[in-house]
Every structure is written in C-alpha cells, then in structure tokens.
Design a protein around this nucleic acid. Structure first.
Length: 501
RNA sequence: GGCGAGGUAGCCAAGUGGUAAGGCAGAGCUCUGCAAAAGCUCCAUUCGCGGGUUCGAUUCCCGCCCUCGCCUCCA
C-alpha cells in the first residue's frame, strides 16, 4: 500500500523493514477523562490502516501507548482523591469500551508510561552521558535541542525559527504583535511552567517533584520526580519495537513538538533512524469549527449514544473524509451515515441469503486482498491501498452495490462476492452492518407492546376495516391514531405502530 | 508575524490538464386500496473571486477574499 509520509512529504510505498511484520507505533490516549470523537478519528484511521495491511496479507505489530502520568492525570487523580492508577484505570476502561464499540482492533501491545519508569530513566541517563541532556539547578533534566542537528525536520521548522520564537517568548511579549492573545497566553503558561533551561526550546526529560503533584513521584538519580511526556514514547518504542521501525502515527497536532522531540531523544540516546514513515491524521472539526468544551460540541460516544446514534455511524462518518484534511462533523452527517449503513446492511443481507454462507470472522478475512482486488469491489480496495482514501473507497463501494443484483447471481458467484464484500466492509473498513428486520416480522415488536390499550384497539379496528375493504373507515381511524400520536404502517400480515414523528 | 491545510450541488465529501465519484436529502417511476418500506431513474455546463499560461483549467501560476490548524506538553 502507498501512504503519505509527513517527513518526506511524499506518498510512499510501505514495506516492512524485516520483510515479514509491519511494526508501527501509535500515540494513544491520555486517560484523564472521556475520549471524544476527535480522538477517535485518529484511532479509527489507524485501525483501518492496520486492517488494510492485514487483509492484504501482511502481519503487523501494533503498539499503542496509554499516557497515564502527566499534568492532567495527576491533577485529576488528586482532585478525585484517588491513587493515580485507580483514576487512570477507570478512564482506560471507558476508553477501551468505546474503542470496542467503534470496532477498533485492540493493539498487540498497549504499554503505559507508569509501568516503564526504569526504561525512561535509563534513556535519560544515556542522553546525559552523551551530552544531549543536562540537569538544571532545580532538579529537572532537560534535552538540549541545539545538540541535535536534525531538530525541526519533521515539522519543517528550522532551528533559526525556533530560536526566534524562543527569544520572542523570553521578551515577555514586548516585540510580539498585540493581536495574538493565544500566543501570549502560551508564552505566559510557558514562563510559569518551565524555567532554568539553557534555551526555551529545550524540553523536560525528567520533571522534579512539585508540591501540587501530591504523592505522585518516583525516585531517580536526579531526585524525586516524574518523566516528561515525550520520553515515554521514545522509551517504550525502543523497548517494544527497537531503534528502527516501520511507521509512527498520531494526530497532526503531535507533529510538533511531541514527535519532533521523540525523534531527538531516540536518535540521540540509541542511534538508529527511528520511524521510517510518519502517518498523521488531521483534526475533526464540529459544525465547521474547532471542537471545544465551552462550545458544547465535544461529542463522546456516550453522548451520541444517548441521542440514539450507533457507534458504527460515528465510525462511518470518521471514514467519510480523507485523513489528510480536516473533516467536518455534524449531527446531520451522523444521521446520514446511519441511513447509508442501513442500505449497506440490506444489501449485505440479500447477498448473504443468496450466498447461503455464514459471515466470516476477521481472522478468516485476513489475506483475502488478492481475491478482493479481483472482485467487483476491487476499485474500492484499490482506493484504500492508494493513500488510504476511505471516502473514495466508500463511494466505489456504493457504485458496486448498485450494480450487483444479489437475487440474480449464481449461488457460487454470490458466495465469492460475499467473501469479497466482507473482506472489504467488515475486514478493511471495520464496519459492522445493521441487520435488517426479517421480512414479515414486526420491524420493532416492542413498539406495538408499548402502545396504550386504547390505541391498540383503535389500530385493530382499522386493520379489520382494511380487511373488510372499508378504506374510508380505515383512513379515518388512521387519522385518529395519528392525532393520538401514533403512526401506523402496514405489513403484509399486520401492522406496526410507531410514535408519530 | 512564520509555517501549513482548505474553500466542489441543500448538507457531508472524493477527484482530475481534456471537460465533475459517492452518501444523505429532494423529485419522478414501479410496487402496494392509500400510505410506509423497498427497488429503479433523475438531480453541479460547473468546482470562493479576479487575472494569466494552455488547443483546453475546477485541476498549473499570480493577486485578492474567507475558513481552519500548528508555532513547546491538545488526537
């Protein structure tokens, strides 16, 4: 498959370094609160990426970390009066529940920072030994950005620009344009949080313990404290994937400084060339703007579920735009996604009936890429392999769906197509389709039971009138039912009552 | 201020130097007593605005307007 690489800014073919297993690392969630659908855009795209490799026949090793110690988790745990592990464990559990609902394959390894403190201390020591880090007077350890020539290559910021930014910050905004409150605020926060550094661009590897951290601290050769955020990824990557691995991924906002800092730490501590390919997913917007808690548009799987939206519809929406561009999420698009999925579900049911085969599980679908490529769904599969173009894949899927008439296929042909369809939709895209109501059965039998008795008797009278071909009376009774708030819809052998819209 | 992404039908959204995928919504038809559901068909001479290059531009170049992101711990 081909994929855009942030570092080279080119679409490049992917090959595993060892020729067998594609090994990749994804920056995972910080577990201090509920994950929102913007977070999940990144994880869903990473999931489809992995699925495309696996359906294509490649083995993968997927490592996704959990950030379980940082400013936010410490603050949250202390405010909740809970031990850090209990606090983060709770949010991790909810994250995994949402991830499962969205159809995400669990990573092969899901390491947390807290469980890898020794590895991080070891890496800091090596950086100090090699002269890439220094201990400041306050007991923190910083990485010396100036010691790494390639710093800024990933984000395409050169050191000159970074220094310029640094001097502006140090000047307390005196030479900063007045109309830039966000940058001014960032500079203020920066002044408050970081000090005693040789250069403002330098970042913390080890943060000395502060009173507000409470009891959350670890012993180190440099005193009590905790590791810096960037370090956990570098240390765990080295531990689980080594110094050279195939791909690193995360949201676009991580390009700088997080991934830039990881590269610096890892290359300086261990040598090696770190990630061969960088896969960054652009942000999700809501109603045309940035998501934010204050605007009340920070949706979670729970919120949307309470409004009656299926997690699979969320997944569909997240796949409906290309990962390299911002995607605009609206409740309308979520509703549309539900309709689109229902249509696919009906097609799937018809095809499966004709094929007379059970739905294959994910493991059975792995490696079916070749078969899929040769099927009617080949163009859709091709779109996924060409820079993970999920919207084009969905478009071509519907084009194929409209052409195929399941009832007119030979059973053997239907069976082949069913496998290809499943490999694409369930395997690669990771969509679980809604099962349409069986023909002749009530669409929602619970709804009829929910109706009050007088409504039910009214509906029965209408059904009888219809059987008697007294359509005038039947229509009058239908109007009465509607006035009472119930809509009646006929089936061949009965009717369904639903609350009127 | 620096760097970057983008403005495509009512909404969401692909794409290409050769004349605009797809989904949803909408309309028509078929089928049903009528509805609904389902299936089929239709639905942008046009791609923010103004120039330029070209036989030809939505696609390349220049300018302008607007939106969004990053610029030190946010996926």
């Amino acid at each position: 498959m081909r994929l855009f690489d942030t570092l080279s800014r080119e679409v490049r073919e992917l090959h595993p370094i060892d020729g067998k297993t594609f090994r990749f690392y994804c920056c995972g969630p910080t577990v201090y609160g509920p994950a929102h659908i913007g977070n999940f855009r990144t994880f869903v795209l990473q999931d489809v990426f992995r699925r495309v490799l696996e359906i294509g026949g490649l083995a993968t090793r997927h490592v996704r970390n959990v950030t379980d110690v940082d400013d936010k988790t410490i603050r949250g745990a202390n405010e909740a009066g809970q031990p850090l592990e209990q606090f983060t464990g709770h949010w991790l559990e909810l994250f995994e529940r949402d991830a499962a609902a969205l159809g995400l394959l669990p990573p092969h390894v899901q390491p947390g920072a807290v469980a890898h403190i020794p590895q991080q201390i070891d890496m800091i020591q090596r950086l100090l030994d090699r002269g890439h880090a220094y201990q400041s007077g306050d007991g923190s350890v910083y990485f010396r950005v100036a010691s790494f020539e390639d710093y800024g290559r990933l984000s395409h910021l050169d050191q000159r620009e970074l220094k310029h930014g640094a001097s502006t910050t140090a000047g307390s905004g005196a030479d900063r344009p007045a109309a830039d409150p966000a940058a001014a605020a960032a500079a203020t926060a920066n002044d408050a949080d970081e000090y005693d550094k040789d250069s403002v661009a330098d970042f913390a590897l080890w943060k000395r313990h502060k009173p507000e951290d409470g009891g959350i601290a670890w012993d180190s050769p440099w005193g009590r404290g905790r590791p810096g955020w960037h370090l956990e990824c570098s240390a765990m990557i080295e531990h689980y994937l080594g110094t050279d691995f195939d791909l690193h991924s995360g949201g676009v906002d991580l390009v700088f400084p997080h991934h830039e800092n990881e590269i610096a730490q890892s290359c300086c501590a261990a040598g090696g060339s770190f990630a061969r390919h960088w896969f960054h997913i652009n942000h999700l917007m809501v109603d045309g703007g940035k998501m934010s808690k204050s605007l009340g548009n920070l949706h979670t799987i729970d919120d949307l579920g309470a409004r009656g939206h299926d997690p699979m519809a969320v997944r569909y929406v997240l796949l409906s735009g290309t990962y390299r561009r911002p995607l605009n999420f609206t409740l309308d698009s979520l509703h549309d996604a539900g309709s689109a999925l229902a249509r696919l579900g009906k097609f799937a049911a018809a095809l499966q009936r004709r094929a007379d085969q059970p739905a294959p599980g994910y493991e059975e679908l792995r490696g079916l890429g070749g078969e899929l490529a040769d099927s009617r769904f080949g163009p859709s599969w091709q779109a996924l392999n060409e820079d993970l173009n999920t919207p084009a894949a969905l478009g071509r899927l519907f084009t194929a769906v409209r052409k195929v008439k399941p009832d007119q296929l030979q059973p053997a042909e239907a069976a082949r197509l069913w496998r290809a369809f499943q490999a694409l939709v369930h395997g690669a895209l990771g969509l679980t389709l809604p099962v349409p109501a069986a023909d002749g059965a009530p669409a929602d039998s619970a709804t009829n039971a929910d109706a009050p008795d007088d409504v039910k008797s009214l509906a029965d009278r209408r059904w009888q009138a219809k059987q008697d071909r007294d359509f005038g009376l039947a229509d009058n009774l239908r109007a009465e039912l509607l006035a009472a708030g119930w809509q009646v819809m006929d089936r061949k052998d009965g009717y369904d009552l639903n609350p009127a819209p």
